[in-house]
């Protein structure tokens, strides 16, 4: 039996930023694969390269050297437009700061990715409402983002990430701005998403959150220093 094709494949990826006169090596030769259906937690101190890794995998950035394949396509060789398209279709983002459009309703926030995919309005509304119902906000479609709590905003963000039915969900410290009870709820939701068949990669500082993952990548100074597979903690256990 063949192994399922990797959703993400990094081959000796380096990313160097030029900060004035000094070159900052954010990633130094990272090689890894994420297979479809995995739930991966990325850990590490700040400045270890976690966010750079996520930006590359999320097609927001291009590697300085090496190749980064997302859904089989080499991100480094795509134009800005093509990367945007790949990003919109394949990747869903969840951010620490939620990054919802201000003064805009939950429904419209969730609709946004579909707008750029040219989905007709009626269809958009239907799918967005469905996604919001799935994250437990079916009764808050028309609430504006500034009228919601942090947990609710993150649910909207997850609905927005899921509405395009992506292969890959990238969550950059999704519970970083939430209290522990809400964190547990959000984490349970992400596990549910994962159980639904979507590959999830999440960045976290918290070992409790990481305990919910099947696989933990530990980064340090631009390198992956640990790649450990483990038994997932069951959903809903207090972190």
């Amino acid at each position: 039996m063949d192994a399922p094709p990797p959703v993400v494949e990094l081959r000796d990826v380096a990313r160097v930023y030029q900060m004035g006169d000094t070159a900052v090596h954010a990633l130094r030769g990272v090689t890894l694969q994420v297979t479809a259906g995995e739930l991966v937690a990325v850990m590490g101190t700040s400045g270890s390269g976690k966010s750079t890794l996520m930006n590359l995998v999320g097609c927001l950035d291009r590697p300085s050297s090496g190749s980064c394949l997302v859904d089989g396509q080499d991100v480094g060789k795509l134009s800005r437009g093509a990367r945007a398209q790949l990003r919109g279709r394949t990747v869903g983002f969840v951010f620490q700061n939620f990054h919802l459009l201000p003064r805009t309703s939950a429904l419209e926030n969730v609709e946004l990715p579909l707008v750029y995919q040219g989905v007709a309005r009626r269809e958009r509304v239907r799918r967005s409402a469905e996604a919001l119902t799935r994250v437990g906000l079916g009764d808050r479609l028309h609430h504006r983002s500034n009228e919601m709590s942090g947990g609710q905003m993150q649910r909207v963000a997850i609905a927005r990430a899921l509405v395009t039915r992506p292969r890959l969900l990238l969550a950059d410290e999704p519970t970083g701005n939430l209290d522990s009870r809400t964190s547990t709820e959000i984490m349970a939701l992400l596990q549910e998403v994962h159980a639904g068949g979507i590959t999830v990669v999440l960045v976290t500082h918290s070992p409790e959150i990481a305990a919910h993952a099947q696989r933990v990548l530990r980064m340090h100074d631009g390198c992956v220093v640990e790649d450990r597979r483990q038994q997932m903690a069951p959903a809903g256990v207090a972190a």
Binding site: G58, R80, F93, H99, Y116, Q117, R160
Partner: peptide, 12 residues
């Protein structure tokens, strides 16, 4: 930035 992250192309 948000629009780009959810798939808006530069042209959009």
């Amino acid at each position: 930035g948000i629009r780009m992250a959810v798939g808006a192309r530069p042209g959009h």
